Amino acid sequence: MQQSETQEMDVFRANGLPWLTCRAADSDVVISSRIRLARNFRKVPFPNRADFEQLAAVLQLADGVMPVVEQATRQHLARFALDHLTKLQRDVLIDKRLITNNLAKNPQDRAVYISDDASISLLVNEEDHLRIACRTPGLALEQAYETASAIDDAFESRLDIAFDEKMGYLTSCPTNLGTGLRASVVLHLPGLVFTRNITNIVNISQQLGLTLRGLYSDDKEVYGNLFRVSNQLTLGFSEQEIIDNLKSAVKEITANERRARKALALYMKEHLEDDIWRAYGTLKYARLLTEKEVL
């Protein structure tokens, strides 16, 4: 599978990601959903313990299954070998969240397969032999899981996946044991941040077995009021239970965010408008913007 110039231009130069810019239900709060499955091949060391020969063998196994994956998803997936990409190209894929820093840091015998609409990215030899990531606009976890499950079935039909009857899917990190599923949703929560109710949401999320973290942040604040909420545990729960729990929490957070926005518009209208116009002025007239200002 070769990288074509057209595919490369689409991935690296596209102005936006179709799954991110598409309007969907609740998209005023819920930006996108993602399902990620972690899988490993039996009798092969995890990537952090494997030598280059073993990593190359894993990559060859993945290459052999890709025609079946494309048939199952009805999508073409372009193959990108990380050690054939420039640092800038790897940085673009990181910024678009199609690969991880960990994969880019050790590019030899690592690869990513990306669908034409960038809704699917398959990472080979990251923390696990295979990371299946599927994204959808808005709150559509079931749709993302359906695609991820089809890809998983394609691999399991051709390869021996590491699985234990008691522990479930075996993974490099113990927190991924069991289903190997990490479900996450990106939320835009300016209302809860401005009304200072975000801390309560974070605490409640932890009680529900979820993690709510800033998508872009430093030690002091979250930039752009963008947050990702995801499940903490995968062992002892079914895939449907994980998805249902996350969906229920997201709907409650969305309802609280909308109430906070109404309160801001009613009681802090002038302050809110002042912040908006200051941001607009900076965007229109500044010659240099920091990452924080952009977000």
Results as ranks from 00 to 15, higher is better:
residue 4 S to Y: 15
residue 154 A to C: 12
residue 121 S to H: 05
residue 49 R to V: 11
residue 90 R to A: 12
residue 165 E to K: 13
residue 26 D to W: 04
residue 287 R to W: 06
residue 67 P to N: 03
residue 234 T to R: 10
residue 155 F to V: 04
residue 260 A to C: 08
residue 140 A to F: 03
residue 280 Y to E: 09
residue 162 A to Q: 07
residue 41 F to N: 03
residue 202 V to W: 04
residue 228 R to S: 10
residue 57 A to G: 09
residue 233 L to C: 10
residue 13 R to V: 11
residue 16 G to E: 11
residue 270 E to C: 06
residue 182 R to S: 03
residue 209 G to E: 02
residue 100 T to Q: 08
residue 69 V to M: 09
residue 146 E to P: 05
residue 112 V to N: 02
residue 203 N to G: 08
residue 7 Q to R: 08
residue 291 E to G: 10
residue 164 D to F: 15
residue 279 A to W: 11
residue 162 A to D: 11
residue 122 L to Y: 04
residue 220 K to R: 12
residue 36 R to H: 02
residue 257 E to H: 07
residue 48 N to F: 15
residue 134 C to W: 00
residue 22 C to R: 12
residue 83 D to V: 06
residue 263 A to L: 14
residue 8 E to K: 13
residue 236 G to Y: 06
residue 130 L to M: 07
residue 255 A to Y: 06
residue 15 N to T: 09
residue 29 V to M: 06
residue 60 Q to F: 12
residue 101 N to P: 07
residue 287 R to H: 14
residue 122 L to D: 01
residue 63 D to I: 04
residue 93 L to G: 02
residue 132 I to T: 03
residue 220 K to V: 12
residue 87 K to Q: 14
residue 44 V to P: 01
residue 295 L to C: 13
residue 25 A to F: 15
residue 291 E to C: 08
residue 248 S to A: 15
residue 123 L to I: 10
residue 294 V to C: 08
residue 144 A to M: 02
residue 88 L to E: 12
residue 64 G to V: 05
residue 277 W to P: 02
residue 24 A to D: 04
residue 137 P to I: 00
residue 280 Y to G: 05
residue 115 S to A: 14
residue 157 S to R: 11
residue 129 H to K: 03
residue 103 L to V: 07
residue 146 E to M: 15
residue 179 T to P: 02
residue 225 N to G: 00
residue 119 S to I: 04
residue 241 E to T: 13
residue 144 A to T: 01
residue 154 A to M: 05
residue 219 D to Q: 15
residue 235 L to Y: 07
residue 186 V to W: 01
residue 246 L to S: 01
residue 167 M to H: 15
residue 215 L to K: 07
residue 221 E to W: 08
residue 55 L to Q: 00
residue 138 G to C: 05
residue 181 L to Y: 00
residue 51 D to F: 12
residue 134 C to I: 06
residue 170 L to Y: 04
residue 295 L to S: 07
residue 252 E to P: 03
residue 195 T to N: 06
residue 18 P to W: 06
residue 251 K to R: 13
residue 184 S to A: 13
residue 120 I to M: 03
residue 242 I to V: 09
residue 95 D to N: 12
residue 245 N to H: 06
residue 249 A to Y: 04
residue 99 I to G: 00
residue 262 K to W: 13
residue 292 K to E: 14
residue 48 N to W: 15
residue 141 L to I: 07
residue 231 N to L: 05
residue 89 Q to Y: 03
residue 247 K to L: 13
residue 242 I to R: 01
residue 273 E to R: 11
residue 210 L to Q: 03
residue 198 I to S: 01
residue 27 S to C: 10
residue 158 R to Y: 07
residue 173 C to I: 08
residue 174 P to G: 05
residue 164 D to Y: 11
residue 78 A to P: 00
residue 75 Q to T: 08
residue 1 M to K: 09
residue 280 Y to N: 08
residue 194 F to I: 07
residue 21 T to S: 14
residue 28 D to Q: 11
residue 12 F to K: 01
residue 110 R to Y: 04
residue 226 L to S: 04
residue 239 E to G: 08
residue 234 T to F: 05
residue 254 T to D: 12
residue 55 L to E: 00
residue 91 D to C: 10
residue 272 L to K: 05
residue 267 Y to V: 12
residue 107 P to K: 09
residue 236 G to I: 05
residue 2 Q to E: 13
residue 137 P to S: 05
residue 235 L to V: 07
residue 214 G to F: 00
residue 142 E to R: 09
residue 62 A to P: 02
residue 255 A to W: 07
residue 266 L to W: 15
residue 121 S to D: 02
